[in-house]
Amino acid sequence: MNDHGLSLGRSAGIRDGRLRDGGATGAGVAAATSLDDYADLQRGEVALWSSPQLADRPLIVPRRAVVTDDRNVQPSAAPAETMLTARGVTKSYRRGEHVIPVLHGVDVDIRGGEFLAIIGQSGSGKSTLLHLLGTLDRPDDGEIYFEGHRIDNLSPAGRDVLRNRHFGMIFQFYHLLPEFTALQNVLAPLMIGNGLFTYLASRRRLRAQATELLDMVGLGHRLRHKPRELSGGELQRAAIARALVSQPRVLLADEPTGNLDQGTGEEIMRILRTLNREQKLTIVMVTHDAAIAASADRQVRLVEGRLAQA
């Protein structure tokens, strides 16, 4: 199976020299993350699959998890090689007394290492679909699978860990925390994912990791700047660095260029393409712009709440 989580860690510039500087931890960052996950699994706190190797082990069901049906976790429900799968997903919003249907049974399979663009008009529900895939919201009906495991009915704690460690998200409006500097924004997922003492103990290593990522997106000179001091393109690059810092399996991008001029937008797309090609990062991007979507491997179109091949 692929191991791009690990490869990202390496290619993002966590060089051995740096690591030795970081202290006695010695092991690669990605390995450390896996071990953290493994510890979580041992504690039975959350059911997660940090790496394909771990996925082979018996799944420990989270205490508060709602996974009741064994059939759901059977790989047969979704093709094993797919990273993310949606099956018959429907979603509607309630606005006052009106129920506004957004998605009527969406099926989509996203393979590992794929760069998928979901194209749709504004209001077609493409952002909603992305939120459902990223467990920011729950579907009314249907199922969502991540690496063959059903995730839409996970406990809140399980979904929190999923978002923290396995999904990276970038948004049209960047959504950086205004109180934090660029570096702190990138560190935020690591602060959230680690306890106070774990974080403080490995702070130097994690900062180095975040700095590397900011370097990679070309913001090495802007570490201490607050979001209000950064341009749109810089904000989005910082957001990408933040999405990548916990070495996610999937990057979910919601109109990443929607608020940028053409040149800056293309720069962002270049970064995404590089990530996809060189580090085999699975990317799901929604956009209304067919030109932007063209740089993806595969495009699907969301029309009237259903997906069609573009």
């Binding site: 920011l136 978002r163 923290n164 998200m169 997922p189 994912g193």
Partner: peptide, 16 residues
């Protein structure tokens, strides 16, 4: 509100 949403999208728990 927006910051809270961001934190949640980054995996922060409700308790957090």
């Amino acid at each position: 509100t927006r910051d809270i949403g961001i934190l949640k999208s980054l995996g922060a728990s409700s308790q957090g």
